[in-house]
Design a protein around this nucleic acid. Structure first.
Lengths: 190, 190
DNA sequence: TATTTACATCAACAAATGTTGATCTAAAGT
DNA sequence: ACTTTAGATCAACATTTGTTGATGTAAATA
């Protein structure tokens, strides 16, 4: 099932979708990049939407599994928050085009799938929010609105996928993670 | 030129583009919302792309004019940074659908216009970066990578347009601005 | 050797989409 | 009274787009 050609198909598709958007990417665009006929693509997926579906929910699960492992671990709130940013930076560095779907692509899911995605996203934002809330309760972090604080922390990293996807930029992900963490921790710190 | 109906046309168009994306919004969608025929829309713009063009470069100029005024003012770097976040929050609260174009919509500009937009955006990011750099040089801010710091600061506010566009959320923009500022300033602070 | 599997091509279609030209109406400006 | 202007309608177009069905081929598998 996971043949070379099939992997290449998904890879090129996601790159095109990142740069041109989902609606702006046609099956013919993808076929051209793969140097094959359009009809051929339907050997890999049964519809265009499936490219989005499959890729998006796979990376979503990977991210959420990572979050869960951190939540269940025995770290202080600040420690957990550090691991969360670390996870996000690492995942974005490894798979910028997939993360691009989580940031933008989800809007083009079908109604049902979009509902499902947003419900899951909200649930996981709440988990991060709870970590921050615990940090505030423990006096490790300053008392801001927890919803607002969560949004700021997560949003502060959302430029990375664009940067990592860009050939010209060559951030060192470990250094990026260190500095983001410093920013976030002292941004919330007392 | 700026008649009621024309204003309504742009307003509804931008709302649709925010929710469905530029490519995902058809001229027929807009016509339906305005309860008129598709052909009628061409009394307001000479092409679909013009909706994007006009709206995007107008808000872009408004934002950049604001930045320039702050840069030229006599404040400390930290003071300037505070004014910049204030400007961004205010603008996003007043015109979330326009800001949505600056965050996402620009990707669908024609090649030429996109080049122009990106050049301007880069120039203005550099101006913000210089403020941060001055803050670091003056010892007001901790020494992080200035490019990275700039990206984090600006990106930390990029979730707002989505939230302000949403009917259900009712943030107080003044309070939001205060908390964002606290986060950003202590995030960069020594 | 027979057959399944992964991948490829060609032709074609139905629907969606941006756009145009000709025409109309009612109000506003001169 | 005459003319311009903003807004609206209808029919029609050329393209673009996702998708299908019939068919072919070369390698792996049984």
């Amino acid at each position: 099932m996971a043949t070379d050609r099939r992997l290449q198909f998904f890879e090129e598709s996601l790159q095109l979708i990142h740069h041109q958007g989902y609606k702006g990417t046609t099956m013919r665009d993808i076929a051209t990049k793969l140097k094959c006929d359009v009809a051929n693509l339907y050997n890999f997926v049964k519809s265009k939407e499936e490219i989005l579906d499959i890729s998006l929910f796979r990376i979503n699960e990977e991210f959420h599994d990572g979050i869960d492992a951190i939540i269940e671990s025995k770290h202080t709130p600040v420690g957990k928050l550090r691991l969360i940013t670390q996870l996000y930076v690492r995942l974005t560095h490894e798979k910028p085009y997939e993360i691009s779907l989580l940031v933008n692509g989800w809007r083009h899911l079908s109604h049902q799938k979009k509902k499902k995605f947003l419900a899951e996203r909200t649930a996981y934002e709440k988990k991060v929010q709870r970590v921050i809330q615990e940090g505030m309760d423990a006096g490790e972090m300053k008392a801001l609105d927890p919803v607002l604080a969560t949004n700021m922390v997560l949003s502060a990293m959302r430029w990375l996928f664009d940067s990592f996807a860009d050939q010209k930029s060559d951030w060192n992900p470990v250094e990026v993670e260190r500095q983001i963490n410093e920013f976030v921790v002292s941004g919330l710190g007392v």
